[in-house]
């Protein structure tokens, strides 16, 4: 009964042992157990065989393969993303974005604001649609496509021959 309990306890370690995942202390503990336990030996062998068939070990990666990989990866990095240029691009883009944000936010920041004391007295009022319409100015006139009938770009669609 005690041996069975030990087997149950060690079963997870047998699976990990198949891929060499055990720490030395665990490895030694399992090895001692396997000497006297045929079922666990069979279980360990089955795990090892299944793993060796399903995922056979491949040849070690060579230095030549790593050098080839490094060269290929560096070559694949676009010129705009090469290190120094990349940093300069980000620096420039960051400055441009900051400047754009400053221009966009300036009217909001610089406009007249009510004094702190008067803020509490402000109330939201529903806008007057007619006033908004007048404030928007005259409507944009539709483009008269008929007036451009002679434009070469559209003439092709009318069956006319391009010059």
């Amino acid at each position: 009964m005690k041996a069975m309990a030990r087997c149950h306890e060690l079963e997870p370690l047998l699976a990990e042992r198949a891929s060499g995942a055990l720490a030395p202390a665990e490895e030694a503990r399992v090895a001692v157990h396997l000497v006297g336990c045929a079922p666990c030996r069979a279980e360990a062998a089955a795990y090892a065989e299944a793993l060796s068939i399903a995922m056979p070990r491949l040849a070690p990666v060579t230095d030549a393969e790593l050098s080839s990989l490094a060269a290929a990866a560096l070559a694949a990095i676009r010129p705009s993303e090469r290190p120094a240029r990349f940093l300069r691009w980000w620096l420039g883009a960051g400055l441009a974005a900051t400047a754009a944000a400053a221009v966009a936010l300036a009217p909001m920041v610089l406009r007249d604001r009510p004094s702190p004391g008067s803020v509490s007295s402000l109330r939201w009022e529903a806008p007057d649609p007619d006033a908004l319409w007048r404030a928007a100015g005259p409507p944009i006139e539709d483009v008269d496509d008929e007036g451009d009938a002679g434009a070469p770009l559209f003439a092709a669609y009318d069956g006319a021959e391009l010059s």
Partner: peptide, 23 residues
């Protein structure tokens, strides 16, 4: 170092971890 312009640093990274990735 790589982002600062040292491409050999990238090569070193590949040599450090390329075995893992290729594997």
């Amino acid at each position: 170092a790589f982002l600062g312009g040292d491409e050999t640093a990238f090569t070193a990274l590949v040599h450090r971890h390329g075995g893992l990735v290729l594997g």
